[in-house]
Deep mutational scan, measured.
Amino acid sequence: NRLGIIYEIQGMKAVVLTSEGEFLIIRRRKDMKVGQQVSFENEDIYNV
């Protein structure tokens, strides 16, 4: 599992900021809110 803070939500995608200072786009889940810490898997990351 990886951890990140939700920075922005766009439709079915969420932008998270990881503890390494990396911004990633992941698959959104219904319970996500901006500012929330979430765990996610590598499979949830969109390749940009």
Score class of each variant (00 low, 15 high):
2 R>K: 10
2 R>A: 04
2 R>T: 05
2 R>F: 09
2 R>L: 10
3 L>P: 02
3 L>S: 11
3 L>K: 10
3 L>H: 09
3 L>E: 09
4 G>I: 02
4 G>V: 02
5 I>R: 11
5 I>N: 03
6 I>T: 01
7 Y>E: 05
7 Y>S: 04
7 Y>W: 14
8 E>G: 13
9 I>V: 09
9 I>K: 01
9 I>R: 01
10 Q>C: 14
10 Q>W: 15
10 Q>M: 14
10 Q>A: 07
10 Q>P: 01
10 Q>D: 11
11 G>L: 09
11 G>I: 05
11 G>K: 08
12 M>Y: 15
12 M>H: 15
13 K>D: 04
13 K>R: 09
15 V>T: 12
15 V>P: 00
15 V>Y: 15
16 V>F: 01
16 V>Y: 00
16 V>I: 08
17 L>R: 08
17 L>E: 05
17 L>Q: 07
18 T>M: 03
18 T>Q: 01
19 S>G: 05
19 S>Q: 15
20 E>H: 12
21 G>D: 03
21 G>E: 03
21 G>Y: 05
22 E>D: 06
22 E>K: 11
22 E>G: 09
22 E>H: 12
22 E>P: 02
23 F>I: 11
23 F>G: 01
23 F>T: 09
23 F>D: 01
23 F>Y: 07
24 L>M: 09
24 L>V: 09
24 L>E: 02
24 L>S: 03
25 I>L: 15
25 I>S: 09
25 I>P: 03
26 I>M: 04
26 I>C: 03
27 R>E: 03
28 R>M: 14
28 R>H: 12
28 R>F: 15
28 R>I: 11
29 R>G: 07
29 R>L: 08
29 R>W: 09
29 R>C: 08
29 R>A: 08
30 K>V: 15
30 K>I: 13
31 D>K: 14
31 D>G: 15
31 D>H: 15
31 D>N: 08
31 D>E: 13
31 D>A: 12
32 M>Y: 15
32 M>L: 05
32 M>A: 07
32 M>P: 00
32 M>H: 14
32 M>G: 02
33 K>W: 07
33 K>S: 07
33 K>A: 07
33 K>I: 08
33 K>Q: 09
34 V>C: 15
34 V>M: 10
34 V>H: 04
35 G>A: 05
35 G>N: 05
35 G>C: 12
35 G>M: 06
36 Q>I: 07
36 Q>E: 07
36 Q>S: 09
36 Q>W: 07
37 Q>H: 10
37 Q>S: 11
37 Q>L: 08
37 Q>F: 10
38 V>T: 05
38 V>I: 06
39 S>R: 08
39 S>Y: 12
39 S>F: 09
40 F>P: 02
40 F>M: 08
40 F>L: 09
40 F>A: 02
41 E>P: 07
41 E>N: 10
41 E>K: 14
42 N>L: 11
42 N>A: 09
42 N>R: 08
43 E>G: 05
43 E>C: 12
43 E>S: 06
43 E>Y: 03
44 D>R: 02
44 D>M: 02
44 D>Y: 06
44 D>S: 02
44 D>V: 02
44 D>T: 02
44 D>P: 10
45 I>M: 04
45 I>C: 08
45 I>R: 02
45 I>W: 07
46 Y>S: 07
46 Y>V: 11
46 Y>C: 15
46 Y>R: 07
47 N>R: 04
47 N>L: 06
47 N>W: 08
